[in-house]
């Protein structure tokens, strides 16, 4: 195993794609750090890092198929299980390395925000995001080791990033639907403006307020299933964490009564509800479980694969 890892690290370090991924991650981190300091924090930043990891893994593991390196490793006496695990470990090392580059540069640009957030919250968010990245990496490695066509691996891995994001946000919006909606009766008021245009206004009639069942509300066992599915997606922790700290970034200066940014306002402190604080810890459990399940599935499938 150690020989495979050593050879793999040398291969990664000599790969131009690896260095391109490092440069791209650093450049994007500078851009994102600067943008979030001036405007707002966006969960989209993580997509760029996901892309870097996906392309790197696709390229290097896909090459193992194309050039028959997997077969050569087996001829040398390495078992399929060891080969798969070595690829996974290499992928995870790359993921951690790229994540550290990105988060280090991002944190340097937004140090004023992070100095206001309690260390315990920051550490949990940091590890949660890292574990999410690692879970996604495990998925990329598994796909890349099972499918022998590099172009198809590339397409699947890239589409998967958007697929996961789409599923996460769709489930989140389904869960946000309230059980009841408030409805009113309206009266129509037609006025003529100075240009002679007819303007129609709909005015709520006081006292007609009533609760109406929301047809989009998901309840019962379906809600439990959706909640679990949401937490299991590698993007959900990042999505939730950034939502919890987004108020600390400059974007909100447009809506503050005193017109000061978070950085400028000495009285503004970071706050988090008890439920959110608990969720930051509890939700951390899902990603290692996902990584282990994916790794086990990938290990089993790779061992059954027939290599030409």
């Amino acid at each position: 195993m150690s020989k495979l890892l050593y050879a793999g690290i040398r291969r990664y370090l000599k790969s131009i794609i690896f260095w391109l991924a490092v440069i791209a991650t650093a450049a994007i981190a500078v851009y994102c750090g600067n943008w979030s300091r001036n405007y707002y924090i966006d969960d989209f930043y993580f997509f760029i890092e996901f892309f870097a990891i996906a392309i790197l893994i696709t390229w290097l593991i896909g090459r193992e198929f194309d050039e028959g390196i997997f077969r050569n490793k087996m001829i040398c006496g390495h078992t399929k299980g060891t080969i798969f695990l070595s690829e996974l470990i290499l992928g995870e090392i790359n993921c951690i390395f790229l994540f550290l580059i990105f988060s280090g540069i991002f944190a340097a640009f937004n140090s004023y925000v992070f100095s206001n957030i309690p260390a315990s919250v920051l550490i949990r968010i940091f590890f949660g995001c890292l574990l999410s990245n690692m879970a996604l990496t495990a998925i990329f490695v598994t796909i890349s080791c099972i499918i022998p066509h590099r172009a198809i691996i590339a397409i699947i891995n890239i589409l998967l990033i958007f697929g996961i994001s789409f599923v996460t946000t769709s489930i989140d919006s389904s869960l946000l639907n309230e059980k009841y909606n408030i409805e009113y009766d309206y009266e129509t008021k037609v006025t003529i403006d100075e240009h002679g245009n007819e303007l129609t206004e709909f005015i709520e009639i006081p006292g007609t307020e009533r609760k109406v069942k929301n047809p989009n509300y998901v309840g019962g066992w379906k809600r439990s299933v959706l909640k679990t599915a949401y937490h299991v997606t590698p993007y959900s922790y990042i999505y939730d964490s950034l939502e919890r700290i987004s108020n600390c970034f400059s974007y909100n200066n447009a809506y503050r009564d005193n017109g000061l940014t978070y950085e400028e306002d000495p009285d503004t402190k970071f706050s988090i509800t008890k439920a959110d604080n608990k969720a930051l810890s509890v939700d951390l459990v899902y990603m290692p479980i996902l990584t282990i399940v994916i790794t086990a599935a990938g290990y089993a499938l790779f061992r059954r694969r027939d290599f030409k």
């Binding site: 392309i55 390229w59 589409l159």
Partner: peptide, 14 residues
């Protein structure tokens, strides 16, 4: 390179 075409085209679309 087929894989490179796939990566560039799909990323370009997104």
């Amino acid at each position: 390179n087929k894989a490179l075409i796939a990566i560039i085209n799909v990323i370009l679309a997104f």
